[in-house]
Design a protein around this nucleic acid. Sequence first.
DNA 1: AAGATTCGCAACCGCCCTTGC
DNA 2: AGCAAGGGCGGTTGCGAATCT
Length: 274
Amino acid sequence: MGRAPCCDKANVKRGPWSPEEDTTLKDYIRRHGTVSNWISLPQKAGLKRCGKSCRLRWLNYLRPDIKHGGYSEEEDNIICTLYKNIGSRQSLITSLFYVIRWSTIASHLPGRTDNDVKNYWNTKLKKKLMAPATTTPSKPNYLLNTNSNNQIHQQLTSFSSPSLTDPPPLTNLYATTPEMDNHIQVSDFSYSPDFGSDNQKQDSNLVYELGSLTSQAISNLYYPNYYYFTSSTTWSNDNATIDNGSGASGEEYDSLFKEFGFDPSSSSDYFWIA
DNA sequence: AAGATTCGCAACCGCCCTTGC
DNA sequence: AGCAAGGGCGGTTGCGAATCT
């Protein structure tokens, strides 16, 4: 048995708000101040709308401090950075449980609403960010360290409390210029501190998510073209934790990494995605 | 010019969380 | 503790506008 609806759907108006309705709602809120009960507001204000609809209209459109459109480059950067950072912290690598807190991101952008930021991301920024690295390389195409795994691990761990404006240098990693074909190259192995921090279940479709959701979840903050995965050491542990020790997900990982030529039995391998 | 397709975004849906009883 | 109601939020939809063919 489902939850009772918040209003009588048959007797409320739906669809776009008219200027008259906007005025009615704004006038009511101006006269009464902060709304303590949105469900009862429509009746009091004389609106044939669902209370939730009124709340949404006010919060996303009618509030006096709302900004619409015209995102600046700085705002773009903040959204992209927070998307990566918050996304990787609040979720895991599975598509089913991957949830971005748009309200958290919007709270860093005065005048922007979660809905607005979400729409902006889905229609513009996502495409911009997902565009092939060859067209807009934000960083040089290198980040490989074939024999100082611990060094990478330490550096990534230091990202856990990052500054938004001061990315750490990669100078202590020695660089190569790997082929970037197929967006994935397997070489050595690194570790992302955020990976596997949540107690969430594995999705058997994970193997198909590597290039998108997975990479988002494990990307680091400053180098959006590069993504790190857990090592076999940490990774085995992560899997056990994530999957309540069943070990089933470990097999999925193994097959996933083997698919890209990675040797799960190696303790020193990592791979990156560009 | 007109039909098809894509884009942008306001609005809705439904689930989860919080709060009060 | 358990329940119900309201609030909050992410995902999705619908539709008008813009662009393409």
